Amino acid sequence: MIRAAGAVLWRDGSVAVVHRPRYDDWSLPKGKVDAGETVPAAAVREVLEETGFHAVLGRYLCQVSYRAFGRPKVVEYFSAQAASGAFVPSEEVDELRWVPFAEAGSVVTRDEDRAVLEAFLAEPADLATVLLVRHAKAGKRDSWEGDDDLRPLSSAGWRQADGLRSMLPLWGPARVHSAPRVRCVETVQGVAEGLGAGVLLEPRLSEEGYWPDREAGLVRLLEIADGAGTPVVCSQGGVIPDVVSTLADLGGLSLSGTPCKKGSTWLLAFRRPEPGWSTSDSHTSWPSLVSAHYFPTALPTPTP
Rank of each mutant, 00 (worst) to 15 (best):
L9T: 10
R11S: 11
S14C: 08
Y23M: 12
A35K: 12
A41I: 02
F53K: 01
L57R: 11
L61M: 13
R67G: 03
A68T: 08
V74E: 14
V88N: 03
P89W: 07
E95Q: 15
F101T: 00
E112D: 10
D113K: 05
R114P: 07
R114T: 07
V116E: 14
L117V: 10
F120R: 02
A125S: 14
L127D: 02
L131H: 09
L132E: 09
G146Q: 13
D149Q: 01
L153W: 09
W158M: 05
W158Q: 10
A161N: 12
G163K: 00
P173G: 10
A179H: 01
P180Y: 07
V185L: 11
E186H: 09
A192S: 08
A192P: 02
L201D: 02
S206Y: 09
G209W: 05
Y210Q: 02
W211K: 00
P212F: 08
R214K: 15
A225Y: 01
D226I: 08
A228W: 12
V232G: 06
S235A: 13
G238W: 07
V243P: 01
L255F: 07
T258P: 05
K261Y: 07
S264V: 02
L268A: 06
L268W: 05
A269E: 03
S282N: 07
H283P: 05
S285H: 08
P296L: 09
